[in-house]
């Protein structure tokens, strides 16, 4: 029954997409395997100087390109770099504050994914838009190039890409010759237990970063970017390391111990037996922006036992 199976798979993908759509867009995670779709408002003309960036990944890129002074507003979820916090906040993906956007009078709104509400508003108001979709290392580079071109700083864009590449190369060099490790990447679970485990499929950039860092994602064969993992499959695939990613929260050592203890019920899994469960909290780990090199370094440190600067 291949037809029926595909149907259910689609339904599951739909459900998963629904669940993660909010998180994905809020964080600037990719919404699907699409290439950069740039709809440039004008081929030439003055460089936009009142930009609104609607996702953390975009804000980080614009600031990394040294164009922070052109930013008029950012989304509620843009917390990096610190200068971004000083910019007016214009709501989120699901609840854009259109009044605030109007007051700020932007001459460009940069969006990630399908931000229908904001897009429709901008279209009605004649505000130029730029869409980027960054979901893998190549599309992140492409996104940086598109934004750099729009802001007339192509050289800075290339420099930023070289910087990321240098970091990734450094990680590759450092782990060369080291044994690759099988990894379960947990990006969400019900607090207090190991129910509803969310992981990343092979086509998500998180999985790709872990691969570069010398890890083999045990759910890399899944085509959906953020699926809910089956625990019995997890047990059979016996990961050596579990990465328990909990974003942006201050977690005390005692709380980290409690978080790790929740995994004990999965006895027999090498990561659990050997205490190779790592609670990671840094905010850049799930943002497909200029700090992916940093994220990869962090993954490499954890995977190869070089616990350094967190």
């Amino acid at each position: 029954m291949p037809g029926k199976r595909t149907f259910f798979r689609r339904k599951a993908a739909l459900a998963g997409s629904f669940l993660f759509a909010a998180l994905a867009v809020l964080l600037g995670l990719p919404s699907g395997p699409q290439a950069v779709d740039s709809k440039l408002p004008r081929a030439s003309g003055p460089v936009p100087s009142r930009i609104i960036t609607m996702a953390p990944s975009i804000t980080e890129i614009v600031f990394a390109l040294g164009q922070g002074h052109r930013v008029a507003g950012v989304s509620d979820f843009c917390t990096y770099p610190p200068e971004a916090l000083e910019k007016p906040s214009v709501g989120g993906h699901l609840n854009p504050n259109t009044e605030r956007i109007t007051v700020l009078g932007p001459d460009l709104v940069i969006l990630q994914g399908k931000s229908e509400k904001t897009a429709r508003f901008c279209e009605k108001r004649g505000i130029p838009m730029l869409f980027v979709d960054m979901d893998s290392i190549p599309t992140i580079y492409k996104g940086i190039r598109t934004i750099a071109k729009t802001l007339s700083c192509v050289d800075r864009g290339e420099a930023l890409i070289r910087d990321i590449q240098a970091r990734l190369d450094e990680v590759k060099k450092r782990i060369a010759g080291k044994k690759r490790r099988s990894v379960f990447i947990c990006i969400g679970r019900e607090p207090g237990g190991v129910a509803s485990l969310y992981t990343t499929g092979g086509n998500s950039f998180v999985s790709q970063l872990v691969e570069i860092a010398g890890g083999d994602n045990i759910f890399a064969d899944v085509n959906h970017p953020y699926p809910e993992a089956s625990k019995e499959v997890l047990i059979r695939r016996a990961p050596e390391v579990i990465l328990d990613i909990r974003l942006g929260r201050d977690i005390s050592p005692e709380q980290a111990q409690k978080l790790k203890a929740a995994w004990k019920v999965l006895r027999g899994v090498p990561a659990v037996e050997n205490g190779e469960i790592h609670v990671l909290t840094r905010d850049f780990l799930l943002v497909p922006g200029p700090r992916v090199g940093l994220a990869t370094q962090r993954f490499a440190e954890v995977l190869h036992g070089e616990e350094a600067h967190e």
Binding site: L19, A22, L27, G92, S196
Partner: peptide, 10 residues
């Protein structure tokens, strides 16, 4: 924080 919305929806 938006990270938690997914867990709630689930």
């Amino acid at each position: 924080s938006p990270h938690l919305l997914v867990t709630m929806d689930r």
